[in-house]
Amino acid sequence: MSASKKRYAMTVDTRTCVGCKACVLACKSENDVPDGFCRDWIVEEVRGEFPDLSAEIRSERCNHCSDAPCVSVCPTGASNIAEGGVVLVTHGKCTGCKACIAGCPYDARYVHPKGYVDKCTFCLHRVQKGLQPACVGVCPTGTLTLGDRNDPASAVSQILRKRKSKVNHPESGADPNVFFLV
């Protein structure tokens, strides 16, 4: 892959995230996500035993995996890789066979009541216009950053150089692009 090719990635700072769910709600209104469904969600993990406790809060969503199994299992090409490696579902091509849901190690997809499969788009429709994704924009704690990982000057690249990070279930082999800063 040439270095000039875009590779969008997101960082989630678990130190600042307060689990307020503004990102979840902003996503819902921006993307008209139907009642009862979400494209992003909050995981709150507390470890230890009273009073020796530690907590981690993560805002999670589709990882826009570099080696996305959801795309490879899709029989119709509805699941596709768009600009910057963003994984999208073209609704009109989707049969609702759900192979991609079974194939996603992160359970990031859901069946839209209209029948097609839906998920986080990294708000590519906004990013293409130079705007931030809705969740990134709303977040009161500045926890979320989206940017081009292949551009060393981008905010995500800088953050990833500066901070220690991890991905969810690296053993899935899907090579996720959402990084949790610890």
Binding site: E44, K98, I101, D107
Partner: peptide, 11 residues
């Protein structure tokens, strides 16, 4: 203790 807000139908 792990809590998630996700509750997508079928997922």
């Amino acid at each position: 203790e792990s809590v998630t807000t996700r509750a997508n139908h079928l997922i």
